[in-house]
């Protein structure tokens, strides 16, 4: 299949089951919202090395936040609910609570819940105050600029991690241009984030390695420099650069939406030869998102 002269490979992105949380961070001004969001989502590109993947879902207007202040919605994913709990305690504790003027709320209903504010409260050293409203429990933790308000628990739901697109371009500028445009198009789609730096990853990986201690190693089949050396390659001769967009979403539909937007946007961009996706032969992930299925509809 081709779209605007770009080949859409008849393959599937192999996504896997993760658990996801939506965290609303608000602050006195957009500046401090961004500051907190940046810190909270920093170093959260891949579960492999960061234990979670996180990113900003979108910015929120004051009307959309629980406390009527500027805010942001952050999604955070990990392999299980417990892991999310731990990561949220660490990240909200270190990145949000520390940031002036912020408050932090659960942003979704989910299947399970993890105690976050209920852990962070101990920072209050006995001075913390619990509040209940509408069956929801908050903690007010005294801090030097006033109080840090945080939900007692956050709800987590089964989610989809590792949705992806591989953009194969003739050269770096064309692949990068297409990737940036795709990221821009995906931005704002509810329920998804792109955990890598500005949404794009160049170090795509395959599972396993010749080194025993590594779970993943470079995706040699897509490294242009390894064409001819690696046992197998997926890089056509005319391609000089491959970039990947990884998508985590709160549900499959959101991930599919994002991938669809990404394909539609990247396809036909100058120098984009082929759009493919990373899979491991279907043995690893629970979700196989066929690229043709996405664009056919």
């Amino acid at each position: 299949m081709e779209i605007h002269n770009t080949e859409i490979v008849d393959t599937f992105a192999e996504a896997f089951k993760m658990w996801g949380a939506r965290v609303i961070v608000t602050a006195h001004s957009p500046k401090w919202v961004r500051a907190a969001a940046q810190a909270m989502t920093g170093f959260a590109t891949s579960v492999i090395g960061c234990k979670c993947e996180a990113g900003v879902e979108r910015e929120l207007t004051p009307a959309e936040t629980p406390d009527g202040r500027p805010g942001v919605s952050i999604l955070l994913f990990a392999m299980d609910a417990e892991g999310i709990g731990k990561r949220l305690v660490e990240r909200i504790g270190q990145s949000v609570m520390t940031c002036p003027t912020t408050a932090c709320f659960n942003g979704q209903e989910g299947e399970k819940s993890v105690v976050v504010g209920g852990q962070l409260r101990y920072f209050g050293d006995g001075y913390q105050i619990s509040k209940r409203l509408d069956g929801r429990r908050f903690w007010r933790i005294p801090v030097m600029d006033g109080e840090f308000l945080v939900d007692h628990q956050f709800e987590v739901c089964p989610a989809v991690g590792g949705g992806n697109l591989l953009i194969l371009g003739t050269d770096l500028p064309s692949a990068l241009n297409a990737a940036e445009k795709a990221v821009e198009a995906i931005d704002g789609i509810p329920g998804v984030i792109l955990p890598f730096p500005d949404g794009v990853v160049r170090s795509g990986s395959k599972p396993g390695s010749k080194y025993k201690s590594l779970f993943a190693s470079t995706n040699d089949a897509y490294c242009p420099t390894l064409r001819g050396i690696a046992p197998e390659t997926n890089v056509p001769a005319e391609a000089g650069c491959v970039l990947e967009i990884v998508i985590d979403g709160l549900n499959l539909e959101a991930v599919e939406n994002a991938m669809r937007q990404g394909i539609k946007t990247a396809a036909g961009c100058d120098g984009v030869i082929r759009i493919s996706a990373g899979n491991y032969g279907g043995g690893l992930g629970q979700f196989m998102i066929g690229l043709h299925d996405l664009v056919r509809e």
């Binding site: 608000t26 629980p66 406390d67 009527g68 202040r69 408050a103 509040k131 409203l133 509408d134 908050f138 007010r140 006033g146 109080e147 308000l149």
Partner: peptide, 26 residues
Amino acid sequence: FYHPSFLRLYLRRLRDMGISIDDAQI
């Protein structure tokens, strides 16, 4: 003297219920 953020939740919740709350109070 401070701006208790929890109170914003309460007051906005009351406003949603149709009780008139000044912006200043929030």
